[in-house]
């Protein structure tokens, strides 16, 4: 109870402090440079001042937070990648040299590439299939809602859910994991799935696909509904069958949206960490970059240099997407 009250109190203070900043700073600006009931030339001058200052009052806190939490760390990480364990002594390219000679890095990198190919593709594929089919049936919205649901579940919660499915009992004990129970039912040999090299990567990926398919489905479903129905009707009159309509008329029209979904999931995959940490912690050949980075950050008191190097690899992988996004938005702004 006491904890609840103190948590509540600290919450209210935090939020109010933020709101108070905006209110007070704007109030101060209007008091210092009033624009009402003053001679015209003073009004014009004050208006000019407030118009110059106010945007920065509005955007200032966000700018400071972005700088401190995202821009500065990127630069600092690059610097740290040239420093040693504690981030103090300069070691040149040692960390990079270590990285490229490290077996675990190659394994993580290879696994990450596998994740990058499988997860976005599978999620987008299932999302597109489900979006297309649910649009045709009367209970489609309920189906979509249920398939979308895993989006709300944390990676760690999802890991528990799936670990339970992959659970393995040795000997003659009844299998309580669904997957092994099915295998046994069909006469197969139960397995400790998450320890089977290579394939265990796929079992981990299934978790993320399970979560992300709903996202792909929702976006693609909206895009499909945005297709002008005249184009489909025209194709029907031209004699196309359902499959042809889907691949030749509908998919090309939502190509842009498919790309957006694909890149969004790609970015997420690069950062995947919780699932691997919870399921295997990188054992049995399932290590990925994000988990390896986390590992180096804390292992034996932490090796900041090596951690930073791994982080930079992740960063380099997202740069193409970043550049593409910025180009896109600049084009859009010029259009206005």
């Amino acid at each position: 109870m006491e904890q609840l009250v103190s948590a509540l109190l600290i919450m209210i203070i935090g939020v109010l402090a933020c709101a108070a900043y905006f209110y007070a700073s704007n109030w101060l600006l209007d008091v210092l440079f009033p624009s009402k009931n003053k001679p015209a030339d003073i009004v014009a001058k004050n208006i000019h001042i407030t118009n110059t200052v106010r945007p920065w009052l509005f955007i200032g806190p966000a700018l400071i937070a972005l700088t401190f939490y995202l821009i500065y760390p990127v630069i600092e990480s690059i610097r740290l990648s040239f420093l040693g364990r504690a981030g103090e002594e300069f070691v040149g390219f040692d960390n990079y040299a270590w990285l490229f000679s490290s077996d675990t890095f190659y394994q993580s990198f290879k696994n990450n590439m596998l994740w990058l190919i499988v997860v976005p593709t599978a999620s987008t594929f299932f999302g597109l299939i489900i979006a297309t089919m649910t649009d045709k049936i009367w209970w489609g919205n309920i189906a979509k809602s249920l398939i979308f649901m895993p989006m709300a579940i944390s990676f760690i919660g999802a890991s528990v859910i799936w670990k339970f499915i992959y659970d393995f009992r040795s000997g003659d004990d009844a299998q309580i994991g669904l997957l092994n129970a099915i295998v046994v039912f069909f006469g197969g040999e139960p397995q400790a799935w998450i320890t089977v090299p290579f394939w265990n990567n796929l079992f981990l990926m299934i978790i993320l696909i399970w979560i992300q398919t709903g996202f792909a489905m929702v976006i693609l479903s909206a895009a499909l509904r945005g297709i002008p129905s005249e184009t489909i009707e025209a194709a029907v009159l031209d004699g196309a069958n359902s499959i042809q309509i889907f691949f030749k008329i509908m998919v090309p029209q939502i190509w842009g949206t498919i790309a957006v979904v694909w890149t969004t999931i790609t970015i997420l995959v690069l950062k995947v960490f919780d699932i691997v940490l919870a399921m295997t912690n990188g054992q049995w050949g399932t290590q990925v970059l994000a988990n390896e980075m986390f590992d180096w950050m804390f292992r034996g008191g932490g090796d900041f240099g090596r951690g930073a190097v791994v982080a930079i690899v992740i960063m380099v992988l997202v740069i193409p997407i970043m550049v593409w996004n910025i180009k896109d938005v600049n084009k859009e702004m010029e259009g206005r």
């Binding site: 009402k36 015209a40 009004v43 208006i47």
Partner: peptide, 11 residues
């Protein structure tokens, strides 16, 4: 008769 180039709309 008053130049209003720099006067905001409301005034």
């Amino acid at each position: 008769g008053e130049v209003v180039n720099d006067i905001p709309p409301a005034l």
